[in-house]
Design a binder for these strands. Structure first.
Lengths: 192, 192, 192, 192
DNA sequence: AATGAATGAGCCTTCATTCAT
DNA sequence: CATGAATGAAGGCTCATTCAT
């Protein structure tokens, strides 16, 4: 029942912005506490390490994006094919909104070479969820297709999505998303 | 045309390994000079800043990968469609070899939020070259297709490639590359 | 006469272990409260400062060791010379039990340069008591000897005891205690 | 041939003073660099860690005290018994000069519970040397005595020395040294 | 070219203590 | 009594860069 948007939440919000905009490693605790206007000790009474904050950030970011995506797609309830295409519109909006900073998850993936660290696991989990989501929509679209076929299509759509994310970030324009979107339409229209 | 594998080259080689394996920001000058067994001043007599080294690294990495790719694909000379598919085999090899550390360019893209900094430009340039390369192969494959169609196909293949890169890195397995490869075959087989 | 082994007692017990094993300065309040499983505020409701706890620790440690020593020596009731020798057996037992961590008092002496701080006074008091104890045993042993002579013997035995403590700690073996013990026998056997 | 009392030497000198007067753990790098009037980075270009400095300090302190002791005792060349007694005069001088701060080695012993850390090893080495020195003097004094007897006497003298060190520190007066000195005379006069 | 000492802001984290609840 | 958030100085250490040699 706690209503108060407590200090911890505030720290995470401040850090989220900085981590995303600047990168995880390049953002120091000092900058975070100054932006949050708290003392250093206060930070460490809420998080036992920078990594714990990073993890929290990834978890909350994941949840936030999933919610936003679902909300955006809710306007196409009952039309899974339309949803699959709409995902790319949603992506384009986000890309421009953040001025081509890309995906927090993929960016952090790049910053964490240790494949078994907690942050990597969180990223993997999130991405697996994204793939599963696409898979379920594809399954809805093509209930008659073979599982193998559906996995190929879902996989390809997922890759187009990821590709569009990084290409948009690379080129600072949303053209790749348009390409991806068109391709998704084709993929869904393919004959078995 | 300089023959002597001079100090500068050696520094770049050492730094390349560290930048790629660990990340750009996380790798310090101290670590580089220790690995290269040179003094700090020596480093700065060759590079005026860490960023200059980073830039050089990106340039050389770009060149190296382009050469390797071309060499790998040379076995399929005269068969552009085969080449397009083979690019993914080449990718799979690299992914495993570097233990899923991904693409140096995309990783560095994540670490450089400033979209107009020199390193970002180098990355953009490299990626543009990659897309162009695919485009020219697609053009060879489908000389009769419309330009618009060829751009869509090349673009999609490019996005599948990028998507496969980051998905492979995310999941630490090459399955996504297989998916991408199969999709490329389909794309090239599509009717106009 | 308080019966309940209250919170305060528990804190002191936990702190005693840590202070002794690790050292006074190196042991933080955080570690103590975590080991005691209490909140920070709880700690400060029982002790107004770390130093107060340190003082309490020294007092209780003093009392504990005095009690243990007396209990150990009680088996030789009526034989003061035997007691003086037995003190070194008692010392050897303790040295091995704490894996050559030495004497809490002397260790803390080293950590408190300010010769007039309360903790130093507590240590001084304890050590004075130790010397007095030896003196009284020596007096019992040699009632006929001059006071000067008895003081010299007691003092020497005391120094041998302290020396054996730190030498045992230095070398991580109890050999010095054996040397000291033999010397004590000689000292008690000396002719006036 | 380097004459310049370089920065490193200066840092060690400053740190030696602080480590001895205040204790090793309680003395921070910040205090050292401020006292030495250098930048933090400068410190770390000379020492790779605080522990390395601590080790250097112990080594140099050991050497310094050995030299001073030998020099002091050189006035009694040819009279080993006199030397053994003079050691305690030397000790008394030192004790007063440092205002009963005790022995840097024993103090640091108290601060380093880890019996296998480098600093502990340095302390052990130094103390072993001290004992050996006494042993050789005793051997000179009593060439006819059995080895066992000489070891007992040397050991006892060593323990009296250590005991006098810590007792003087405990009580802030040199009386214990007088006691020890008298006892040494007795020990050397004992019949086999 | 090459050296490595020097800089000082910054890194992440812990310190002992206070205080409102 | 008990809680744990808040403080900010300090902990040991690294950063990229400069510069005199």
């Amino acid at each position: 029942m706690s209503e108060k948007p407590n200090r911890k939440t505030q720290i995470i919000e401040v850090a989220s912005k900085l981590f995303f905009e600047q990168g995880y490693h390049v953002t120091g605790i000092k900058q975070i506490i100054e932006a949050a206007d708290i003392a250093k000790g206060t930070f460490y009474s809420h998080f036992k390490s920078k990594e714990e904050l990073g993890l929290e950030w990834l978890h909350q970011t994941a949840q936030k994006w999933i919610e936003r995506k679902l909300e955006y797609l809710s306007q196409f309830e009952g039309d899974p094919a339309r949803k699959l295409v709409a995902m790319f519109d949603f992506q384009a909006q986000g890309a421009e909104a953040c001025r081509y900073r890309g995906c927090a998850m993929l960016n952090t993936l790049s910053e964490t070479p240790d494949i078994s660290c907690p942050m990597r696991q969180a990223i993997r989990e999130y991405k697996k969820g994204g793939l599963n989501f696409i898979q379920s929509l594809v399954n809805e679209c093509l209930p008659e297709a073979s599982e193998e076929d559906r996995e190929q299509r879902a996989g390809a759509i997922y890759l187009l999505f990821e590709g569009a994310t990084v290409a948009t970030q690379s080129f600072c324009k949303t053209d790749p998303i348009e390409i991806a979107k068109k391709q998704v339409v084709k993929i869904l229209a393919e004959k078995a």
